[in-house]
């Protein structure tokens, strides 16, 4: 039989420890810090933002200097790195890489939001608890494994000896797989982007009162019209937020283009890695990083402007 009295000394020690903490707090005059508690609570976030800002300032500093990669010696202030980004022999290639990165990222964003929205709607509106939990679990599965593992998994499926090639040959088509194509990169990136978009849209859909949809239906609106004129406008802040996050993660993608693109379809991140490690030129890499960051930021600003995110509470102007 369990001895219930055996835990009594622990409780006593617990209270005594608390007394000690309170005594130390009074001795230190910690109560005087109470008015500053909001500031102190902000400190970790501020430290993180500062660290990131410091990194960006460093990138800016590097990008506006010339650099001798052989002697590893920094030169004077200069626009040399930005000139190199646009001039031969790399100018056309860099532009092409930037275009590829932006176009595939936009397609991933559109695809992820378009497919994530109905899934999120299903999770919110289904009456089956089991279906809701199962869907959420399935959404979380891709996050349980690393990106490189996911990429190699897709390489097996999309490769010349993979499932796609097997199905193609079974139906009589001559296919060597689709690895090394933009489609393969897009598919690989979609796997994690769809769940991400779904989870980001969920809160916005949860806040939509189901009675609004019922009211619209009562007035004779078919489901498509209800979806178009009621659900989508009210979910717009969530959709815009999801699109921003998916896009920002997509433009910084490295593994999927490297593995599923077979090295032939580099994104900007792949080129920056090459510049850093193979050209040994962190100054040029910094310049390209900042160009990508500026374009990404511009995209998010536009998205926020047109997406109806007017405040942090997720209010909609729709």
């Amino acid at each position: 039989m369990r001895d219930r009295t055996s835990r009594a000394p622990d409780v006593g020690w617990g209270w005594r420890l608390l007394d000690v903490v309170i005594a130390v707090r009074r001795r230190l005059g910690a109560d005087r810090l109470e008015p500053y508690r909001p500031y102190l609570m902000l400190a970790p976030a501020l430290a993180l933002v500062t660290l990131l800002a410091g990194g960006i300032v460093y990138l800016v500093y590097l990008s506006f200097h010339s650099f001798d990669t052989f002697l590893f010696r920094q030169g004077p202030w200069s626009f040399e790195q930005y000139r190199r980004l646009v001039e031969p022999p790399s100018g056309d290639f860099n532009l092409q890489t930037l275009q590829r990165t932006l176009v595939i990222s936009l397609l991933v964003t559109v695809g992820a939001v378009a497919l994530g929205l109905p899934v999120a709607y299903f999770i919110v509106r289904t009456r089956s608890r089991a279906a809701r939990i199962l869907t959420l679990v399935l959404l979380l599965v891709p996050f349980l494994m690393g990106e490189v593992v996911r990429a190699f998994g897709w390489a097996l499926v999309l490769g010349s000896n993979g499932l796609v090639a097997w199905v193609a040959s079974w139906v009589g088509a001559d296919s060597g797989g689709i690895l090394g194509t933009p489609l393969a990169v897009w598919i690989g990136m979609m796997q994690v982007s769809i769940p991400l978009a779904t989870l980001l849209i969920l809160p916005a859909l949860t806040r939509i009162d189901p009675d609004l949809e019922r009211a619209a239906a009562t007035m004779g609106a078919p489901p498509v019209r209800v979806w178009r004129h009621v659900v989508t406008p009210l979910a717009r802040p969530g959709i815009a937020g999801a699109a921003a996050v998916v896009f920002l993660l997509s433009v910084a993608e490295y593994d999927m283009p490297a593995i599923l693109g077979l090295g032939r379809l580099p994104f900007v991140a792949n080129v920056i890695r090459s510049i850093y490690t193979l050209q040994n030129n962190l100054y040029l890499g910094s310049a390209f990083s900042l160009v990508l960051m500026a374009i990404s930021t511009l995209f998010v600003v536009v998205l926020v402007a047109v997406g109806g995110i007017r405040n942090l509470r997720g209010g909609s102007d729709g």
Binding site: A43, L46, A47, T50, A53, G54, G55, V57, Y58
Partner: peptide
Amino acid sequence: GTLAGVSVPV
């Protein structure tokens, strides 16, 4: 804080 944080690393 931001000023100090940015200034120190710079």
